[in-house]
Design a protein around this nucleic acid. Structure first.
Lengths: 211, 211
DNA sequence: ACCTAAGCGGACGACGCCCTCCACTTATCC
DNA sequence: GGATAAGTGGAGGGCGTCGTCCGCTTAGGT
């Protein structure tokens, strides 16, 4: 560590091809989910498979890179939510925006839900995300708008549910997702809350499956 | 057509092996979902692959046969629900039971949600199921317990959601599913219902995907 | 007991995906 | 413009699944 070199020195054409790969992968993931063949991505980029593998030795490394900015967007959503003076509105819009991101990009969820064992940076971010979410829910509960027995794992339930609905609904995905999220938000409200069965021991970390 | 023979005349050993296959398939589907290799099912049954393929030329035919009784159970659940004097309790218990069936058997949902183009009998049953569900929701709405803007497609949303949660939660599946269903039922109640975005154009028929 | 057709199993070719290896091309520095 | 190391593409070996083919086994009738 600390050589300073790392990877800054890529030849110009290589750097260009790297961008082609990322764009192709982004498109492919968005359209067909995370399990598109590596060869299909390479073909879409107009490059050979070897080039793809040299730049991104594992599928995970490619996924991580592709979704880096989506992750960033996700964090900015959380930050926005935290600075909203109305805690419930913050909570609600954060949920809505993240679910809309799932609709916009089929692969995003899988990346979001997937903890790559080796990806240190991702791990750090995940912890940050969980902290932000915890704070968000704490404040919404304190304001008396989020039901007191709401738990962290409930968001995981919702993300899984939304992911499945988006995956299966095809054309109808945007409408279906909005309806689903409205239902969830309605049942997350403190108002009229009845007792619930216990929450499952799920976390963003716990749930991981890379296709 | 019209020989009357059809398949009644199977040799005794063949009939026995057929049962072995069905049992093995049931176990395999329950444990790992619908996409287990055919060879794995054959091995579990202690038979050769050819035997499996001769008896069930397509994966679908096997799935249909395996889940025939689960379908029957499903219909009896709907019938019970329809005879319940309390429409809301009928609706609620039907939902809870079907979702519990999804937990008990990973493959069941996929079979439930999958419309095999050629399976006439299945198609007829699906239509029956949809009619029963329609009646169930109509009565629950009439009793003022189910929200008036509830739609058929919302059940599909829930089944998809539950399926995904069951698939991903592993050990925690039973707890996770119960929690999820409680949330859904809460938001399906007429009491405290706020306006919703429109329902997606989904039906049990519309959603079909065989792994 | 014996005949015969139904039943059986495993080997096999096809396919699709993964990932690597190596001979060829090309950017970059002098 | 030439040296050289970085970069490239496609062929190919490995793997796992599918579904079929064919020679052997065995149930069940006589």
């Amino acid at each position: 560590m600390g050589e300073g070199s790392s990877r800054i020195e890529l030849r110009a054409d290589a750097r260009h091809n790297r961008e082609l790969i990322l764009r192709a992968a982004r498109e492919a993931f968005a359209a067909r989910g995370l399990d598109v063949p590596m060869a299909a991505i390479a073909r879409r980029a107009g490059l050979g498979v070897a080039t793809l593998y040299r730049r991104f030795p594992t599928r995970e490394s490619l996924v991580m890179e592709v979704f880096a900015d989506q992750f960033a967007e996700c964090f900015s959503v959380l930050d926005d939510a935290l600075t909203d003076p109305d805690p419930w509105r913050g909570f609600r819009t954060a949920v809505e925006k993240v679910c809309a991101m799932q609709v916009a990009d089929r692969g995003f969820t899988a990346a979001f839900l997937t903890a790559f064992p080796g990806a240190i940076d991702y791990e750090r971010r995940r912890v940050e995300a969980e902290r932000a979410l915890a704070e968000l829910t704490r404040r919404a509960k304190e304001a008396g708008r989020l039901r007191p027995d709401f738990e962290h794992a409930d968001l995981v339930l919702m993300l899984l549910a939304n992911n499945a609905v988006v995956a299966e609904a095809g054309e109808a995905a945007p409408v279906a997702s909005q309806r689903l999220v409205a239902y969830f938000l309605h049942s997350f409200r403190a108002e009229g809350a009845a007792s619930l069965p216990p929450a499952p021991p799920l976390s963003l970390h716990h749930v991981h499956r890379i296709p």
